[in-house]
Nucleic acid binder design. Structure first.
Length: 668
RNA sequence: GCCGCUUUGGCGCAAUUGGUAGCGCACCGCACUUGUAAUGCGGGGGUUGAGGGUUCGAGUCCCUUAGGCGGCUCCA
């Protein structure tokens, strides 16, 4: 073998010499390697290595490998759709978290029942073991081949520009088509414009996939474009992993606050009131009150002052604030008051428009403006559980997490530029501390900053710079993971948002701390500085819960309804073994009530076993059971939600344990 | 707002090709008075989200409308 016939390459970090023509199939003989990264770029295993290539195998279970699996599954789905309906036009079909989708332009939308038919056809294609074959083409040829695919033609035209979601189809490099080649006949049975890479063949998709739902989506995500029909699927390296994924979804469904809200009798959305407008039932109301009481207590301890403002206002307030100019669509329409019209229909007295408030800030600003302010007054911290109303589009409403009427735990801090850093530090620590008390303790931060190229941002460069640096510093000092969100700031100031992970790993945006350089300007806010000059304060908006409703929903899902005793609507329920012991338990309940424990005695005429079942399903933290043995010993038996029990606990001790768990905000 | 699906007593579900609504839980009554996840018997409750249409006849088909669900868009 002569020198020039040997290629020196690196495979997974090891130097290797191979013959020309060697491809990934020779380098990686294990079935789990489905592609490889060549000099940092993902390639099919069929790629023939070049001298000097640095190659790393991509395992199917790796993030890259899963994407390749899912994208390949998307191709199989598209082929299945076109096999069944040759008229279907292809949109795009990228991998997404846990799965994939493919968009189609079809005459009649898919039905859920169509999914079974499509899965069957997909299964046939997978079993057929078609090879995915990459083929380089060019604009001219591709346009001929794809003459019947208008959306693909559009993507070819967009090649190299900002494609967003279309990037799975065409990349910055060569234009490529993937042929699906029948393993027996060698015939190309289907093809799609795609940059790849793909699994070597369809059989490797295995049986760990499923189609999950049908939906519609605007072509290229623009609501002015046509809506295409989207089919969603999920795909995993094995059936077991698919099953595990489905179980995770089932677990999330069990925790769904909309379901638990009804089951635990916490809240409802009566149709008579309107979409997105909740009522809290006694149990949910108790929880909400406890949440609010604790929040108030902590705010008071932290130097906030409590203010109150009305739910409606004349339009001029929101004209000054600018909300009517840029947020009118999100507001309920005005109530026109006081207009007087004579018999000829001529307006005799000008009316006045009143609006439901979508935000509390302008009201707090008016409190600030109610008197001349000195630097000595600052920072001024105003807190309110402020109810706001926003006309959210009907399609976005979702349980308690996206509503039309909500109560924010809203505060506005008016600070001098010198106060800013200390105050932001305080606020962030306050926020994190409070969220932890409610049982959330896994956070990361997101810092939204301005795009220097975009002229929409108000405020001087200096103040943006100072503010952004301050937020950055404060965020870094918190020691939490910090995710930058460049260009994500509102036009009026940068912000930090706190993202919390719940018990099953989902993240929720919770608190926001938002700087505002705009409203102080619009309302001409000022304070007198030490040197006697008038200066403009900076405003900080912040909400911890976002809204109480939303936070309530998040906590319900986080705890799966198993609220810790301090939050539980019923903390203790007493269950007598027989009627005769009812009085005994009532005596214990009376002692607990002296300590404000929410306790009930179930002296209904159900059997004891039934009562245990009922209160377990109601997720009451402490069940106290008492019969003859307990009464004789001045004791009681605990039973917990998980079915465990402890018998013969002296009453004194039982009470102490309950009080301690509540006091410590412990989970039981 | 857009697309699709969906809407049956408080809740969860049934009702062959259109032929005048059933079940479980819950609720009420009676009996039972019981040591750790559903005692037994009996009873009341719906005209099928609302409105209109097709039909001899509609929960079942069509239209309008209001909820809900899943996506898309949106979330200043």
């Amino acid at each position: 073998m002569s020198q020039e016939q040997i290629l020196n390459i690196s495979v997974d970090g090891a130097a290797v010499t191979v013959e020309p023509g060697t491809d990934g199939f020779k380098l990686f003989t294990d079935r789990a390697t489905v592609a490889h990264r060549v000099n940092g770029e993902l390639k099919d295993l069929a790629y023939k290595v070049q001298d000097g290539d640095v190659i790393e195998g991509v395992l199917i279970g790796s993030p890259d490998g899963l994407n390749i699996l899912r994208h390949s599954a998307a191709h199989v789905l598209a082929q299945a759709v076109q096999n069944i309906n040759p008229e279907a036009k292809l949109g795009i079909g990228p991998p997404i978290t846990d799965g994939f989708y493919y968009d189609f332009d079809v005459e009649t939308p898919f039905n859920p029942e169509d999914l079974r038919v499509l899965e069957k056809e997909m299964n046939r294609i997978v079993q057929a073991g078609q090879r995915f074959m990459r083929r380089v083409t060019n604009d001219v040829d591709a346009r001929v081949e794809l003459a019947n695919e208008p959306y693909k033609l559009e993507l070819i035209g967009l090649k190299g520009s900002d494609l967003g979601e279309g990037s799975a189809e065409v990349g910055a490099g060569e234009l490529t088509i993937y042929d699906n080649v029948d393993s027996k006949s060698g015939e190309t049975v289907w093809f799609d414009l795609c940059r790849g890479p793909h699994l070597p063949n369809t059989r490797m998709i295995g049986n760990g996939y499923a189609l999950t739902r049908v939906a519609s989506a605007y072509w290229r995500g623009n609501e002015n474009n046509k809506q295409l029909q989207r089919v969603y699927g999920t795909a995993w390296p094995s059936k077991d992993e698919l099953r595990a994924h489905q179980e995770r979804l089932e677990e999330a469904a069990r925790r769904d606050h909309r379901r638990l809200g009804a089951e635990l009798d916490l809240f409802s959305f009566p149709e008579e009131i309107g979409s997105g407008l909740a009522v809290f039932h006694p149990k949910g109301g108790t929880m909400r009150r406890v949440m609010e009481d604790y929040s108030r207590k902590r705010h008071e301890e932290s130097g906030y002052e409590f203010v109150y403002s009305p739910h409606i206002t004349k339009s001029n307030l929101f004209e000054t604030s600018g909300h009517l100019a840029w947020y009118a669509d999100g507001m309920f329409p005005p109530m026109r008051m006081d207009e007087e019209v004579d018999e000829n229909g001529v307006v005799r007295k000008q009316g006045q428009d009143y609006y439901l408030k979508p935000m509390n800030c302008p009201f707090h600003i008016l409190v600030f403006k109610s008197q001349a302010r000195s630097y000595r007054d600052l920072p001024l911290r105003m807190f309110e559980f402020g109810s706001v109303y926003r006309y959210e589009k009907s399609g976005v409403l979702h349980g308690l997490t996206r509503v039309r009427g909500m109560t924010q735990d809203d505060a506005h801090l008016f600070v001098t530029p010198d106060n800013m850093e200390a105050e932001l530090t305080n606020v962030l620590n306050f926020v994190l501390g409070l969220l932890k008390d409610y049982g959330l303790n896994d956070f990361y931060l997101e810092l939204s900053t301005r795009d220097p190229e975009n002229p929409k941002f108000v405020g001087s460069d200096e103040i943006w710079e100072t503010a952004t640096n301050t937020l950055q510093k404060v965020a870094t000092e918190s020691g939490l993971e910090l995710v930058p969100d460049p260009g994500g700031a509102a036009f009026y100031g940068p912000k930090i948002s706190v993202q919390a992970r719940d018990a099953i790993g989902r993240t929720w945006q919770m608190s926001t701390i938002q700087l505002d350089f705009n409203l102080p300007e619009r309302f001409d806010l000022e304070y007198t500085a030490p040197d006697g000059t008038k200066q403009r304060p900076v405003m900080i908006h912040r909400a911890l819960f976002g809204s109480i409703e939303r936070f309530f929903g998040v906590l319900t899902e986080h705890y799966a309804g198993h609220f810790p005793p301090w939050l539980a609507p019923v903390q203790v329920v007493g269950i007598p073994v027989a009627d005769a012991f009812s009085d005994y338990l009532h005596g214990i309940a009376a002692q607990l009530r002296k300590h404000a424990v929410r306790v009930q005695i179930d002296d209904s005429d159900e059997r004891m076993q039934k009562k245990i079942r009922n209160h377990t399903l109601a997720k009451v933290p402490f069940q106290l059971i008492a019969g003859g043995q307990d009464a004789e010993n001045n004791a009681v038996s605990f039973r917990f939600r998980d079915g465990t029990q402890e018998n013969g606990i002296p009453v004194e001790e039982a009470i102490a344990r309950i009080l301690k768990a509540i006091e410590d905000k412990a989970q039981v």
